[in-house]
Design a protein around this nucleic acid. Structure first.
Lengths: 187, 187
DNA sequence: TTGCACATGTAAAATGTTACATGATTAT
DNA sequence: ATAATCATGTAACATTTTACATGTGCAA
């Protein structure tokens, strides 16, 4: 389980409530680790029981109270130990690749539906890439980054490289699918 | 759940026993969908109960009996229906990215350990890429591919593009990590 | 005789997803 | 009024991972 480690990193970068963490997992952290608020609350509970984080009750005017979680020295030591442990090979699960190989068992009309679906999927990735590039301009424009910014930036560059690779590959996929059924009338 | 669909595609390409499927998920299919034999046997059971596959008992000399599974017309129809359904956004979970951002909370000595780990991880990906390229030369060297080969090939090209992107990014990561601790004595 | 490849499973634990549940404030 | 944001959880279900379990034949 790396969700606990992802949460520790995020809390070290900036203490937060469960709700704020969930927001981050929808944005910046979600680039490389997704989680829902249900998972986050469960893991926060465990981390607090093990004294790896501590929560401070914060009363807010005109907003519900929240618990602001911070990493303890114990938690920080646990994270650092984990950093040096072997990285496991990623468990690849690419649904679209399954569909593409499955298209061999479909007919031309069915494959046309798949082409439409791939185009929609491609548009989603264009949007994600645009968001990454906007974030890069916003957060990493100026010079002289500290260690934290340099590391956040290299992770973001990884996301950008991934999205560009996906877009190029999807163009390859679309060309391949269209080559299978060439005699499509223009009207 | 796409594992059932990945299994249907694989069985349509070539009927197989559970054991043989597990082997394929270690190799070619594992490029885009991983599964262990425990998962595979469980899903085969379900698929058989729903009449989407049928098993034929095969007695083998000097080897244990096996069940050879094939996709039924019902199973094929179910797969084709799924092909046209929306592709869900992938749930990204990249452990290494978490570690890299976590490195901001480690010291130079600890980061040196992470560098070593990234180098090992990079070597693994070099091996995977070499395997893909060898497979490409072996399976897709000659001309005039049919639909099935063309689709398998474009998926493999996706794997190749992914590995190349990862290797380039890991070089970026290594350069970034080394820039953080520049005054390392050569002896 | 030790280990690997073949062959198929069960069980328990950990994780992840989806749905349900509540309640205040702010903006339209 | 209605929806969105803030804020925190529980419960049920699905899926994945890890460990356990068994047995044959062949090669070093």
């Amino acid at each position: 389980m790396s969700l606990e480690h992802a949460i520790l990193v995020s809390l070290l970068e900036q203490p937060a409530s469960g709700y704020e963490l969930a927001r981050r997992f929808d944005r910046s952290i979600g680039r490389f680790w997704t989680a829902t608020h249900q998972q986050i609350y469960r893991v926060l509970k465990q981390l607090a029981e093990d004294d790896r984080i501590t929560g401070e009750e914060i009363g807010q005017e005109s907003l519900p109270d929240k618990k602001l979680w911070s990493v303890t020295p114990t938690g920080r030591a646990a994270l650092v130990g984990w950093l040096h442990a072997p990285v496991r090979p990623e468990a690849v699960r690419h649904e679209l690749a399954v569909k593409i190989r499955g298209a061999a068992f479909d007919d031309a009309a069915g494959r046309a539906l798949l082409v439409a679906e791939v185009e929609r999927y491609r548009a989603d990735h264009e949007t994600v890439l645009a968001g990454y590039l906007a974030g890069e301009r916003r957060d990493f424009g100026s010079a002289a980054p500290d260690a934290r910014a340099a590391l956040q930036h290299v992770v973001l560059r990884g996301g950008i490289a991934y999205e560009r690779m996906v877009l190029a590959w999807l163009d390859d996929v679309l060309a391949t699918l269209r080559d299978l059924d060439p005699e499509r009338p223009p009207a």
